[in-house]
């Protein structure tokens, strides 16, 4: 589904990603872990097409197509969803209006008619239930005045509405209390299927107790320095990152 080969990217002179290789197949959950500053958020931004980062080498293909030349919205239309670490506030634009616009733009790109208002409303209600979102929330301004937890929950709610093929959850666990974490994780698990894939980017192992990954990768200094299964995450939790960093530096 997603195939990243020797990806190098950075901002101006500085190189942040120094050759990333990653294969994600449908139905898989990959966790990307790593200490602060290792390039985790850069990776997610580059996949989503943020123009602040310059790709200096390598390739990203999604379902066989090279996506590096595509605009962010075109990547979204293909089914790539990024849950932002810091969701953006847009004053005056309601959650419902935003989701509706977003959903229908994607449908338009796929040559579909806009979703009838009744269906949309029904779908929203279902998903709201899934994430235990209160009524009245839909008419609030997007992310404005939301608590950290609400913002994250809103991201996952949008994900549920848009039903992406590939979801990238960038530090979705940061700022969540344990109850919110459980709700978000349950939602993510319910959305899992054999057709879609998830990349969970996190600093801590905690989220991975709820969203069980098939693979765990450790990102350090712009490279994936170790890959393994969920046991690797536990190991990291116990021993910290230092031993991996030492290992990596020795190489």
């Amino acid at each position: 589904m997603l195939s990243i080969k020797d990806l190098k990217a950075g901002v101006e002179e500085s190189q942040i990603l120094k050759g990333i290789n990653l294969e994600v197949k449908p139905g898989e959950v990959h966790a990307i872990m790593g200490p602060n500053g290792s390039g985790k958020s850069t990776l997610s931004s580059v996949i989503a097409g943020r123009e602040d980062y310059e790709v200096k080498g390598g390739s990203i293909s999604f379902e066989g197509d090279d996506i590096l030349e595509l605009d962010p919205e075109e990547r979204a239309h293909k089914g790539i969803f990024l849950s932002f670490q810091y969701p953006i506030e847009i004053p005056g634009v309601s959650v419902s209006n935003f989701i509706k616009t977003s959903l229908n733009e994607s449908r338009k790109a796929q040559g579909l008619e806009p979703m009838p208002a009744g269906d949309l409303l029904k779908m929203m209600r279902e998903k709201m239930e899934l994430f235990e979102i209160k009524k009245g929330y839909l008419s609030r301004s997007l992310n404005q005045g939301f608590s950290g937890g609400e913002k994250k929950r809103n991201e996952i709610f949008q994900m549920a509405m848009l039903e992406p093929k590939l979801a990238i959850l960038d530090e979705t666990d940061s700022g969540l209390d344990i109850d919110a974490l459980r709700i978000v994780a349950n939602g993510v698990n319910k959305l899992r299927s054999d057709d879609n894939a998830t990349i969970v980017i996190t600093h801590y192992q905690r989220l991975l107790d709820y969203i069980i990954p098939d693979f765990v990768h450790v990102l350090y200094d712009g490279r994936i320095v170790k890959s393994g299964t969920k046991e690797l995450a536990h190991e990291l939790e116990e021993k910290g990152y230092d031993w991996i960093i030492k290992e990596a530096d020795q190489c």
């Binding site: 919205e73 953006i88 847009i90 004053p91 005056g92 616009t101 959903l103 848009l162």
Partner: peptide, 30 residues
């Protein structure tokens, strides 16, 4: 208009022109 606002909309599949219309309408909502 914040570039990060536009990118956020883009990421959700909303093109730049639509994103601006959306943000402006929000800005004028009061």
């Amino acid at each position: 208009i914040g570039e990060d606002q536009i990118f956020y909309c883009n990421q959700r599949g909303i093109g730049t022109e639509e994103a601006i219309a959306l943000i402006v309408n929000g800005y004028c909502k009061d």
